[in-house]
């Protein structure tokens, strides 16, 4: 025991000394740390590489060929990209994706801020819990199921029209998902419904982190509720807002499931989005090359929109 007691500190001291001396060695130790780091990252990297990087690289590769998915592909250079950017039908799908940003991003974020502020301000008890649960529920329900329910709700005899009739607006009732003027907005509202809960919850969490002393100070200075909101709440939520906007913009641009289930792009391509067009091109049109090119263009558009938001939030958020 005694011998051990004595020898223990010695050993640890020795090791510490060794570590210290190793750290001072410029090359060897750093290399070992790096190696160890890579070793830990490797499994995740392998999965990421196989399931994300490799398919993306393959998509870029396919986009340079004319290929039906089975026969020998034919090199066409950037022809597929030219098609994607000039074919009015394909360009229209990209515009539709941008239109969806209003419903998928603007509405949930703005409304989410209002709802979160209200919940935080006046519905703190059981009511607050209930409101949070109800609003978050769409995130839990599979989108396909939600889409099916919404098609029933928005049908000619659906609840939406029954409600409008009840409040005296029978004149405007119609099959919303079958209307050239309203189908995209109707699809967008389904998206807004799904994403409102996510944004509300994120913003609510962000609000709860704000120091209460700030509000007290503001109140002493005579600030009203609006002033408080714009001077304290909103600036403190930059990080959460960045996450909300990022997630919802991506959801809008790459939307597939909601559109596939509710309208499948109809009527007359008025709700056709890039995600659905890629699927149709690849599996029914057998134009794997064009589908891949559209996919690559979509990835680039998403990156161009998302990266600035990320940089902005990083610079000011820290």
């Amino acid at each position: 025991m005694n011998a051990a007691d004595r020898s223990m500190p010695e050993t640890s001291a020795q090791t510490d000394g060794q570590r210290r001396s190793l750290r001072t060695l410029p090359f060897g130790k750093v290399r070992r740390d790096t190696l160890l780091g890579w070793l830990f990252v490797l499994p995740a990297l392998a999965v990421y590489g196989v399931f994300v990087l490799f398919p993306v690289a393959m998509t870029v590769n396919y986009s340079l060929y004319r290929w039906d998915g089975f026969n020998v592909p034919k090199w066409v250079g950037l022809d597929n990209y030219k098609t994607v950017l000039t074919d009015p039908e394909l360009v229209n799908t990209l515009f539709n994706a941008f239109r969806l940003i209003f419903f998928f991003t603007v509405i949930p974020v703005v409304l989410g801020l209002v709802v979160a502020a209200v919940i935080r301000g006046s519905a703190t008890g059981k009511l607050g819990h209930l409101a949070r649960t109800v609003l978050f529920l769409p995130q839990v329900i599979p989108l396909v199921a939600a889409g099916i329910v919404w098609t029933v709700v928005l049908s000619l005899n659906g609840i939406a029209n029954q409600f409008l009739t009840a409040i005296g607006l029978k004149g405007i009732t119609q099959a919303w998902l079958g209307s050239f003027d309203w189908a995209l907005a109707a699809v967008g509202m389904i998206g807004a419904w799904v994403l409102l809960g996510l944004c509300t919850l994120l913003l609510l969490t962000g609000m709860s982190k704000i120091d209460k002393a700030l509000y007290e100070a503001a109140r002493i200075d005579g600030a009203g509720a609006f002033r408080e909101f714009f001077a304290i709440t909103l600036p403190s939520l930059k990080q959460e807002l960045a996450v909300c906007i990022t997630v919802t913009v991506i959801a809008a641009l790459r939307s597939f499931d909601i559109v596939y289930v509710s309208t499948a792009g109809g009527p007359g391509n008025s709700t056709m989005v890039p995600g659905l067009e890629i699927y149709d091109l690849a599996f029914f049109g057998r134009s794997v090359g064009t589908a891949s090119a559209l996919g690559v263009v979509l990835i680039l558009i998403i990156l161009v929109l998302i990266l600035p938001i990320q940089w902005l939030s990083r610079e000011t958020g820290e």
Binding site: S179, N269, D280
Partner: peptide, 21 residues
């Protein structure tokens, strides 16, 4: 053809119903 239904007939007939074709 592979997608004449999805890309041709269906949208065009829908447009006709909507008075757009």
């Amino acid at each position: 053809t592979g997608s004449i239904y999805a890309s041709g007939w269906t949208p065009e007939l829908q447009k006709m119903v909507g008075g757009k074709e």
